Amino acid sequence: MFRCVRLWTGSNHQSCFEEGWIDLPKGERHDLLSDVIETTSISFRETSEGGSFSWHDAPNRQFVLTLSGTLTFETRTGDSFTLYPGDILLAEDTTGGGHRWHLIDNQPWRRVYAIVPQDIDLPFISASSKC
């Protein structure tokens, strides 16, 4: 199971988040497998250790797959969560107050961005919400 945290803009125009996972309903050879997800682009990025990014919205609806680095995200309401290597962020807070993040370990944040269309359903399953 892949841990996934979803960020979105709530009715108060501030970023909210919920923790959950990516649905893996299929399988073969004892593997679990999601449905195919349409993407419009994929890119790779690395931020040096100690990096941070102040308040911003997600530029697109996107999955952000963390390969290395541990970082804390914060919303303007003061709520926060931590991402670890192997976690997935589903960033959908493209408007509103936004979020910020900073690295909390001595590793660079290596990540993959996969931009997804607005009109498709994604295999995110919510476990808990903070809004």
Rank of each mutant, 00 (worst) to 15 (best):
F2N: 11
C4G: 07
V5K: 03
R6I: 04
L7Y: 11
W8H: 07
W8Q: 03
T9K: 04
G10P: 00
G10M: 04
S11Y: 11
N12V: 01
N12E: 09
H13I: 03
S15A: 12
S15P: 04
E18M: 06
W21K: 11
L24T: 15
P25M: 09
E28Y: 05
E28T: 13
L32D: 07
L32V: 11
L33E: 10
S34V: 06
E38P: 08
S43T: 15
F44G: 08
E49L: 12
G50A: 04
G50C: 04
G51S: 07
F53N: 13
F53T: 06
D57R: 12
A58N: 02
N60C: 13
N60P: 10
Q62A: 11
L65T: 14
L65F: 14
L67V: 14
L67H: 08
G69P: 01
G69Q: 00
T72Y: 00
T77N: 07
T77E: 08
D79T: 08
S80L: 04
T82Y: 01
P85S: 04
G86A: 12
D87R: 06
E92T: 05
T94Q: 08
T94R: 13
T95S: 14
T95I: 14
G97T: 06
G97C: 08
G97K: 06
R100N: 09
R100Y: 00
R100F: 01
H102Y: 04
D105P: 01
P108T: 02
W109F: 09
R110Y: 02
R111D: 10
Y113R: 03
Q118A: 11
I120K: 07
P123Y: 05
F124W: 11
F124S: 11
K130S: 13
C131W: 02
C131N: 11
